[in-house]
Design a protein around this nucleic acid. Structure first.
Lengths: 188, 188, 188, 188
DNA sequence: AATGAATGAGTTTTCATTCAT
DNA sequence: GATGAATGAAAACTCATTCAT
């Protein structure tokens, strides 16, 4: 479908040439359509970017939910590892795209979208952690649900410097950070 | 001096109008010179941005070094708190600028610069931690020196969502994360 | 009927959004049909506009003819007043539309249409004045029949500045102008 | 000068191809400059059009003022003739341009500009007529100063149908209308 | 060294029109 | 007859950069 072709073209362009090559004319051309057609499916350039971001977010959340299901009945260590693996899974595909989109999300001139994403991330982690309620008892859950996603994101983003290499290590490090942080909170 | 005026103008423009208003003509005008002059001091637009980033980085490193001096003789807990306070100090000034620059740094199309910064961060932290050598003994120092800066950056960047508010909490959370992580590494 | 729906849609669009919203896609959509269908009834966009103008002209002429019937047997003063009231009647409906169309008529890139309209206006007025042949005797009828419509149009268009307000005064002023002009011509 | 070249180019384009050919790219090209340069002198396309209109208005007012000076000491008939000749003078140059601009002025999407022009026209005529205060005594001057410019404009615009031909006759007719109207007002 | 007018490639977006179904 | 996806020329405007003075 044309719509899909446009998004695919946009993705490719983004991963190959970065933001520089990401212009509506190029996107349309690579998609094999005309600009007019592109503008029939998207009100403007930003909308294309937004859709890309939404899709990535959607995939990520799906992965995390799946991980949550797998995590039930496991130990906390195991559960955290699974959740983080889910959180990172989408970065393992055709590598560069996901990174570029992740970064774009950050420079979004639409603060409410960013806020939305943060909130979603928090909610998911809170739900995930509720399984181990007793373990994580007495810790302010709201604070916890903001710190952990932020921490994970930071380790993943900055440890690997945007490259696929080291993702495994970063993943392990993130797990250690989360468990260390939880541990410390409980001993309070 | 003209050079300084240009950089100041660039900073102001960046903080007030964001990337949109950040164009060479505007920078020169606000600096009270002509574009021609701007191009006598900087080879191109990117160079201006790069200089802004370098300065911010320089300031940040200076703050951290100062914190390190203050930290000698303290407990690990105290030391970590001081280091992180140093790390964050530059975000407490005229707030928006620092955040915009931080973000720009990330979308730098010049990977080696980013890598440089990461490496510098790592080195500083390694040096800082060497004071507590015995405490942190037996932990792979390289890994540690990458994870901690990444972790801190993540918590600071994503906890506060770019706003000044909450920086205090973010700071405390970052401290907890770092200490938790260190703790866990040692118990291995 | 589809045809009527299209014209109505066009009228509404013109009155609500002005020339900016007057595009074939919008017209078709608001009319509840597809662009394809619009182009089955009209060869191009201009044709739609032309039809709107023709209709307005047709209405105006009808009003004037009606006024002429009512004017028979009256004094010249009364007759002129009635004719001008007829001439202006269509501007008293949903106001903006008529004005926009009037203006469009002027910027018509089709001179022969404008010429046609002028000629028609002249003819009508000539016919109207023939009732008072004796009164207006010895005046070049052709010249008179061009000046009077032009004069009336000017006073109506420019006195009111396109707004409904003041149309009453403008009407009275137009009557005065016409009678003054006729008076002067006769005294020659 | 570049500025002048752009305006001249705009004028030519307007008179030769009408509004259709009046686009910034064409204007710049014909002026022998680049679009960039055009946009250094004018903030946007509309500004070019506005400047054209202002200049025409300025010329027209100058002509009228000159006529007013010449008119002092003359009879009313003579004075009116002179004023109207002044009012029309600018239409006698390279013909089409003035007409196109006149028309553009009318379709100005900037109501306050139109209102300004109307007000200026009124003021000038009021001042002009004040010389014959005794003659025109007891007539509402405000009304008069709106009706007369409107009337004149109408006769000039619609009598001649945009062509230079017949301007002489139109001028004479306008004089007759004005005098007839004044006459009638006084006899009240 | 400083100036700033000039450049023009590049970008977004619109909209009248076509044509295969 | 109706549909509406697709087209693409055209237009407005931006801004990094150059270069003659």
């Amino acid at each position: 479908m044309t719509y899909a072709a446009i998004l695919q073209s946009a993705t490719q362009l983004l991963s190959r040439t970065g933001l520089d090559g990401f212009n509506t004319n190029a996107i349309a051309e690579r998609a094999g359509t005309s600009i007019g057609t592109l503008y029939q499916y998207f009100p403007n350039k930003e909308a294309v970017m937004l859709e890309l971001i939404h899709r990535q977010k959607r995939d990520m959340l799906a992965n995390i939910y799946e991980a949550m299901r797998d995590a039930s009945g496991r130990t906390l260590d195991e559960a955290v590892r699974l959740l983080i693996q889910g959180r990172v899974k989408h970065l393992r595909g055709d590598p560069p795209i996901a990174w570029v989109i992740t970064q774009q999300e950050q420079s979004l001139p639409i603060p409410h979208v960013r806020a939305d994403h943060l909130a979603q991330g928090s909610q998911v982690f809170m739900r995930g952690l509720s399984y181990w309620g007793p373990t994580v008892q007495d810790v302010d859950p709201l604070q916890l649900s903001r710190t952990i996603p932020a921490l994970v994101r930071g380790v993943i983003e900055h440890w690997t410097d945007g490259s696929q290499r080291g993702l495994d290590v970063a993943e392990r490090e993130a797990v250690d950070c989360v468990l260390g942080y939880l541990d410390r909170q409980q001993r309070r």
